[in-house]
Design a protein around this nucleic acid. Sequence first.
DNA 1: CTGTTAGCGCTTTCAG
DNA 2: CTGAAAGCGCTAACAG
Lengths: 344, 344
Amino acid sequence: MQEKERTKQKTIYDISRRAGVSIATVSRVLNDSPKVSIKTKERVLQIIEECGYEPNAFARGLGTGSMRTIGILCADVADLYLANAVSYLERELRQNGFDTILNCTGYDHERKAACMKAMEARRVDAVILVGSHYIENTPEKNQYMVDASVNIPLMMVNGYLKGDHIYCNLSDDYSAYYEAVGNLLDSGCQDILFLYREATYSQSQKQKGYTDALSDRGKVFRPELVLQSNGKMEQIKEDLIQYYGEGNRFDGILASDDELAIGALKFAKAASLTVPEELSIIGCNNSVLSICCEPELSSIDNKCEIICVNTVATLMRVLDGQKASHKTILATEYIQRGTTKENM
Amino acid sequence: MQEKERTKQKTIYDISRRAGVSIATVSRVLNDSPKVSIKTKERVLQIIEECGYEPNAFARGLGTGSMRTIGILCADVADLYLANAVSYLERELRQNGFDTILNCTGYDHERKAACMKAMEARRVDAVILVGSHYIENTPEKNQYMVDASVNIPLMMVNGYLKGDHIYCNLSDDYSAYYEAVGNLLDSGCQDILFLYREATYSQSQKQKGYTDALSDRGKVFRPELVLQSNGKMEQIKEDLIQYYGEGNRFDGILASDDELAIGALKFAKAASLTVPEELSIIGCNNSVLSICCEPELSSIDNKCEIICVNTVATLMRVLDGQKASHKTILATEYIQRGTTKENM
DNA sequence: CTGTTAGCGCTTTCAG
DNA sequence: CTGAAAGCGCTAACAG
């Protein structure tokens, strides 16, 4: 670490000496305490300015037990949705005077738990978990979060886990998909394929909305119209081509994210199906992707920004010792574009 | 902050007492020092485990002067390219045992400088600046980085600034654009429009490649074939429609990013120009966007991952006191897809 | 190999 | 309003 020591950092003692006051007074000035006379305060501030003094954050952290840092855990910031969320969260946190430590955990359970531990060790003031990937389907696998929440408040963006110090903000995926099915049906679709990526908490809510909407509208749920596809766009397209080749027919696709939907769009082109006339497609997240394709993609906007703003607002109340809601569900908005027929 | 204190955190003293050794020994065990007998080491480790003890990171930071944290400054993680870069950087840093503090500075000069100051105050071990936006065109505006680099190593991803403790890794935008122009010309294009977003360092390199290639191929540079367009996809399309409406003609577009290129593609559709027959388009960054559209976008891959891996590797050498290269330029790769004609 | 001790630079009582 | 002094929890000489 010979890179350090370039400039001998000044300390509070240097300032106190130059100002002819005690370090306590300097500290008070630093913390904008009211019990310092304006005169001394100004003088100290003056000296601080002159010396280009910056208080040592570690020492302050050691003293107060906090460095005003929030940990953000997300599977991968390269993911469009997560990147957006992180961007909003970081902005809000900063506005509230908190720095953010980012940790991309990936999708592996062990690593997630390890990353959470690392955050605790780092003594962040709270951890925000972004994405429904964090909710696993067995209590044992979620235990590490419950454990962590004993020592530190946990905020979830688009995930729900019950716990005394766990606060969740999520979009109403169930209703969004329920409504989307209704829209497709209203526009004349008969057979709607539900296309999803993996079994997350969010996905199960979406699928529930899908099946409930079908049965409420008197349609029989056909399990073969639920298809899973992972991988990238090209793979999704291939999967659908194969599925279609096996004789499966549908005139509507409700996908659990925009990438899947665009894969579907590429499939439509490959299968020479006109969109939206012969095949309607709805994506989810209302990401940039949805306006890149032709026709542009109808999508479900899950109000990521609102969720994030709300998450940080809630966190601030929690850190302030105020009461806060443990579960907040936010409404989504259906965005009509070119891949679905206008109703009526 | 009443949220703290849930579990009285154990200290090194608690461990030393329970283990019947001095705190120094515990500290040695913690730091995996070789000068501890295996026996005591195991015993101490045992106790640490039992107590669920975690060393206080702030205290350690105060003692060592480092919390093994790197600051990443980027204009906005919601930006596709930047998100990718941050993702790679974070991964590499973590693999080297460093946490990353993310700060999205936006594009305003004042804020950038303020954020840099904040990083210094936080006493990160180094700062990585991502994106060529950080390089302004007057030395005065770049001064804050030079100043910061006196106290802390600075790494630049896709930007170049001279300085003793500044280390830059950037893609060879000049050659990439020089070559791209060649490709367009070879495929039969006559009039190539250079479409850019804003005057950044990177952009100027690209434009230089563009003009040099033209003149080297005996074409006269026509200033009216350089068009700036900001805003989102829709706006870009509109700008081009207007530009085209004013009588400007071209059969190739070389854009400085994928979003611009897709805006161009949308323009082509609006103007009923077939792509790539009547209009060839090349984007840059080889982002997801490039495979969302129809036809898929030919793009310049600037090897973001390699740059990031290299950046962190260089940083590690710097922190280790070794010599490192101040400027590394990496080759790009042209990705041929559907918006350009195959050569030959 | 192990223990003692002096910081690291700031916050925070407690007196005055 | 101001100062003295006791930590905060750990690291790192220095002695043994």
